[in-house]
């Protein structure tokens, strides 16, 4: 599904603050893979997502998604086949527009050839209501409310719905529950699991919760210094504990996993 071949990215090259964020990284994801990613601060986790989503172009290497070379495809064009969520719940929705208007924009991604001048039909609203009911947050009765009035958790759940409205080829989740309170985070995570399984979405999720990293999905990447140092999957992953994972990290990189948020959460 996703093929990353030897990509590199250096920020501010040739200056004193030059930073190699991705260092000759290669990886292959099979369709339906659900990968959890953990790593030290500045290991390049978010940079990897930015490279895949097209926030910048890589210095070297190629990225292929579903057989299509997207290395130099502009960000907004990639967005048609890539769903993405950030840690900040404010990033994924337009606060001054209503819930239904936000969902209507997510509809644009579906690539349905409808006119630019079409308006929201009752049929569309019925679909929105049905989808929102899945969230179990009562949002289906608040279609006309501005999104700015919703809580962070509600906004993040709505963003999840929008990102998966038309099934993306790959879903990128960048600590999308980290800014939520534990109860809401749990709920959004359940929803994520449900939707990803239902639609068989290939998915990568950055997390700082080691337990979560092992419980969710079928693969775990450990990242350090702009590369994937450990790719745990299959039999090897079953029965693995957090301590095993930390040990493996130490063996792989020769140093301790250094991420303040991970240390705080374990």
């Amino acid at each position: 599904m996703l093929d990353i071949n030897h990509i590199s990215k250096t920020f501010h090259p040739g200056t004193i603050s030059a930073k190699t964020a991705l260092n000759d990284l290669s990886v292959h994801l099979a369709p339906g893979d659900f990968v959890t990613i953990i790593g030290s601060n500045g290991a390049g986790k978010s940079t990897l997502f930015n490279a895949v989503a097209g926030s910048f172009y890589v210095d070297a290497g190629t990225i292929t998604l579903d057989g299509r070379d997207i290395t130099y495809l502009p960000e907004h064009k990639r967005a048609k086949i890539i769903g993405r969520m950030f840690q900040d719940p404010l990033k994924g929705t337009a606060p001054n527009m209503t819930i239904e208007e936000n969902l209507a924009l997510a509809y644009v991604r579906s690539g349905e050839k409808s006119s630019l001048f079409s308006t929201l039909k009752k049929k569309d609203k019925d679909i929105f209501r049905e989808r929102l009911a899945l969230l179990n947050m009562g949002l289906e009765d608040r279609l006309k409310h501005p999104v700015g009035l919703l809580s962070g958790g509600q906004r993040q759940a709505l963003t999840l719905l929008m990102a998966t409205m038309s099934t993306p080829k790959i879903l990128l989740l960048d600590e999308h529950t980290a800014a939520l309170d534990p109860g809401t985070a749990e709920k959004v995570l359940e929803l994520t699991k449900h939707i990803v399984e239902k639609d068989h979405i290939t998915c990568m999720m950055i997390t700082h919760n080691m337990h979560q990293a092992l419980e969710l999905g079928n693969r775990t990447f450990l990242m350090s210094d702009g590369n994937i140092v450990l790719d745990v999957k299959g039999e090897e992953r079953k029965g693995l504990t957090v301590d095993d994972l930390l040990d493996k990290f130490r063996q792989g990189t020769g140093k301790d996993l250094d991420n303040d948020r991970i240390l705080l959460s374990t």
């Binding site: 337009a94 606060p95 924009l105």
Partner: peptide, 27 residues
């Protein structure tokens, strides 16, 4: 016009440009 799909896209561009890009709209 502001209620059409194009109108919504324009409104979102002033409201949250990140979200606009993520919705595969060219700002």
């Amino acid at each position: 016009f502001l209620g059409t799909r194009l109108g919504l896209m324009i409104r979102a561009s002033g409201d949250n440009i990140d979200m606009v890009r993520a919705s595969s709209i060219n700002p």
